[in-house]
Structures are given as structure tokens and as C-alpha cells.
Nucleic acid binder design. Sequence first.
RNA 1: CGGGGUGUAGCUUAGCCUGGUAGAGCGCCUGGUUUGGGACCAGGAGGUCGAGAGUUCGAAUCUCUCCGCCCCGACCA
Length: 588
Amino acid sequence: MNTWSRFFIPTLKESPADAEIASHKLLVRAGLVRKLGGGLYTYMPLGLRAFRKISDICRQELDSAGAIELWMPHVHPVELWEQGPRWAAAREIMFRADHAGDGKRAPKDPEFVLGPTHEEIITPLVKQEISSYRDLPKNFYQIGTKFRNEIRPRYGLMRAREFVMMDAYSFDADDEGAVKSYFNMKSAYESFFKRIGVTAIAVEADTGVMGGSFSHEFMVPAEVGDDDVIYNETSGYAANREKATSGLVPADLADAAPAGDVEEFATPGVVTINALSKEPYSVPGDTQFKTLVYIGDDKPFLVILRGNDELEEAKLGSLGFGLLRPATPDEIEPVLGAKPGSLGAVKGTIKNPAALAGIFADHAIRLIGNGVTGANKDGFHLRNVNVARDLAITRFGDFRRVRAGEPCPQCGQPLQSKRGIEVGHIFKLGTKYSEKFGAVYTDDKKENHPMVMGCYGIGISRTLQAVIEQSHDENGIVWPWAVAPFQVLVCLLDPGLPEAAELAQKLGKAAESAGADVLIDDRDERPGFKFKDADLIGIPLRITIGGKGLKEGIVELKWRAKKDVVKIALADAESALVAAVQEAASQG
RNA sequence: CGGGGUGUAGCUUAGCCUGGUAGAGCGCCUGGUUUGGGACCAGGAGGUCGAGAGUUCGAAUCUCUCCGCCCCGACCA
């Protein structure tokens, strides 16, 4: 049994200056982690215990879902990444793992990188090992360290450079199987989050640099989250804002007839939607066309939105470019013939249309019908611009950012929005990686097919912090039973009293045999000090043994999550403690 | 990488504007008094003031460069 004096829990009265949010402060104050550098943390003994609880439960849930654990290297030969489908985008967040010396080896490009995830490793492995439909499906997973050179590490473990992730990769013979694997993992995730006592909701998500066809994120609702979840309680619709759609544009909307000929008018000095909406022009934002210029794999392209809509940059991913960025004014003028502020996509006004990779319009501009846009001539705009007649659109798509209050795409009721922490992600990848790496199998008709993949991640270290963010009060952490580093704290107020110390041992052992992890606070400290520490580190069940209580013939039982203290006669202490442990364990 | 901030003992910080002996609280060590919600008294250890250069008789303080860290933006588990 662990005693506090022998264990190591360096608690702090004050919050470290560099911690901003509650969970980060508590991680440090409760002695769970210590910082080495930006985004680099040591898991202290107590923190490691909670961390292990989470990863063990994760492992159990994946095992019972039929996934198979393995362990892949963290150091990767760079060639695998160069061969993979996303090297251009992925290399920006990857650490190089060059040799540290300088003399012996000829300087050249990095030979090794540190793994940010393992598609590029597992796919060649499976190509090598599996070639028959008889060996499919398979789902491999590991729980290990990942390295990402985040531009901005943040909030402690929330976005770290080195972090621990469960990553799984499924391989199926066909699409139907892949969908089955996908939903199998989705339900494994759901039971995982339920077991660790975390509210995490699955939302539709963008596939990002991963590629693939569809995807869900698991979000822990929290003010400090980095993501916006757009949802509607009636229909159950929930999506990351990057992916969210709305019912703003009716499916049966007819294109407006032209309202008249296109006319040019002078707008000297007007370079914003807002300026054009004011006197003397008074063109409302929702009747203006906004023309944005982006560079996709070195070629410019246009995106057209309603004037008062914002571009949801992630949605440009559907266009299939590898690298995307906004164009600079210097890049825009030679192509369109004007500076930003007077841009448009009206046929015949674009200076060098051949240079464009395409003109992509958001569906919502069809609501405008006839509107105003830039003339591609500095200081001039065009009116009576008709969507169907005048704009040189390559194709329509969903590019705008959805706002709260717009109609839900499923039920039409207003959408709502809240912040969330992304703790898990599942992707149906398709054959993107298997084709690239030649992971094919032979079916029962002797035909070869690429395997259909899925990939799955849970940020274990991030989840640890999300638990704290979701479960704390002004005094400290309130651990859910299943992930608490210890579940029972025996608070020994008078460790010098032999009968008290003896009782602590006896009750501790009883709780242990009932299945709890027990910590005895045997330190020679004042009671108030020990209670403060107990609240801070958040052990769910506290049993207090003190000289005073012993004289009265009682011990005290207190749940961290509750206010009241229950006094229990000495004779009943053991059975009451065991019953409490069993009850907590059964409720999870 | 752009914008903003910050760096003084293990932690939280004062001092910087207006240059002149580095100070406090917590924590730590010793002794004593205390002991049911972060005790008190006395004594003590602990600081290249992020690094380098410059200005100056003299720099924590002023100037420049670099570095670290934090926050806002884009990326992600």
C-alpha cells in the first residue's frame, strides 16, 4: 500500500505563472506533471498513475472491439514519408532526427524523422505481411508517443510537441467492411469515454491532411476548447464548424432571372464589403459577391462567397490541392487585373483567366441572384451581375462558415454553437494510402484490390487533461473513479497514535481487497494542510482517521464530489468502506 | 511564421519609468510553541537579475542582438 510520505506528490499552493486554464494549473499544482520546455512534460508519479488508468481502459476497449496491439518505431526513415501521399503538408510539423555529430557522415538531407502518426509505417508493413482476403479484416493499434513540432504548443498537455496517442489502423477487403470497422471503432470510442467518466460527443469532422472520405471527431465540451461544434439538439446534428453545413440555401431554389444589363460604376477608394454597404453606394453585404484569391499547389484560384459570409478555409480541402494559402496582392494583380477590393469573377473581366486553376463558388451566392461585384479594375464595381448568366464559375461547393442561428440542415431549427476539445478522431481513409504503398490483396476470384483503410486516434495525454478540465472545482481536481490515480485516500490525522496508524492499515487493506487503489496520508502535517492537499489531488473517496474521532468512536467518510461528511462507528468502518468502494466501482 | 506580452532564488513576485549595497511571501534547513480546513516565533541556506554586446566612473534598471516562455491567429489528438 502506498503511503504519501514514501510516494512523491509535490503539490503547490500557487499556480505557475505560465498556466492559463484551470486544468493546466491543476496538473501542475497537484504534482501530476512538470514542464521541461514548451509542449514537453514529465509525467510525475501521480500523473503517470492516472495516465495509465486511461490507457489501460483504452486498451481494454480496443481489445474487446477486436483490435490487435503492436508497437511501431518512433524514428522513421524519411523515405517512407516521401513516398506517402502527404509529405508536402506533413513535413511542416515533423521533427527531423538527424545524427547529432558533424564529422563522420557526409552532410545531406535528413535520413530520419520522428513519427507524428503511423500510416506511412503500418501500410508498408501490411503490404509486406498480408496478401490474401483470408487475412482481412485486420485492425492494428498502439499506444505510444507521437512527435509534432506544433507551431504553438498550448495549455500544458492540451497541445504538446511530444504527446501520447492511441493510434489504430484498420484494413478491409471492401468499402462495406471498412464502414463496419469504422462504426465498430466509433462504438469502442463511445464506451471508452463513458468508462473514463468523460462526456465526449461524436461530431462530423473535416478530414484535413489525412484525406479520406468521412470522419468523426470526439469532442469534450469545454470553454477552453480550440474547436467550435455546431449542433442542434432536436435533430442530433453535430459537426465541427470546419465541416458544418446549414439549411440556408433551399434545395429547390431556382436561379434568379437577370435583372438588367451589367453596369460598371465608379467606387473610388472602396476596397471593403463594409465600405460598399455604406453611403453613397448602400449595397447590402448580402447582395455583394466576395471574390477571394488562393494559391493551390502554386496555381491561383478564386473562391466566390456572399459579401457578408466568411470563408471556412478547411472546406477548400475538398478541392484536392496539396498545399493551400491565400494569394498575396502581388500575385493577384497580374492575374485578375486589379488589387484586392475591386476583384470579381464576371466573364470577360479577368485579365488572365488561363492562369487560374478554377473559380469555385459557394452555393449561398445563388441567394443573391443579381448583385454587385468588383470589376477587376481598381476603383470600379459592377451591378446587375447575375449568378447564372455572368459569373465564370467552374463549379459550386460549400465553402462558407456556418454561423449559429442558421437553420439545421436536418431539421431546419436554429443551429447552436459551443467550444470543444478534440480528444479523438476517426477517419475512413479509403484506398489513399494502400494504393500509394501498394497494399493490395487477392480475393477469392484471384483478383487484386487495394485494401480499404481506416485510421483512428485518441489523444491519451490530452484526454487526461480534458478529464480535469471537465471535472474540477475551486479546491482542485475531482477525479472520476475509473481514472483516479488513487481511489481511496486514508487521511491519517494523528500518524503518531499507534491505534490510528493500525486502523489506517486495516481499512486501507480492506479497500484494496475490495478493488481500490489506496493512498495513506501518513505525513506529520497539520490537519488543515492535509485536507487542502487531499482536495487538490482529488482522490474520490476520503476516509479520515483522527485522535478526536477515535475518542468518539468514529471515522469519517467523505466523497470528493460531495459536501457532506459521514461519521461511521468504528465497528462499521470496514464494511461501510468496502460497500462504498464496491458501489463506486460498479458505477464506474 | 505574423501581432502582443514577459524573463529577478525551487515557486509566486517587488525593484526597472527616474542607473548607485538585489528585497519580500511560499517552499527548504535548525530550534521552539502549536495541531480537525494551507499555524506562529526565532535563526539559516539559497540569486552569473535569460544570454551576449554596447553606453556609463557605475547597469536588474538605458540601447542593440539573440534565446526561452506565455497569449491572439493558421495546424492537430
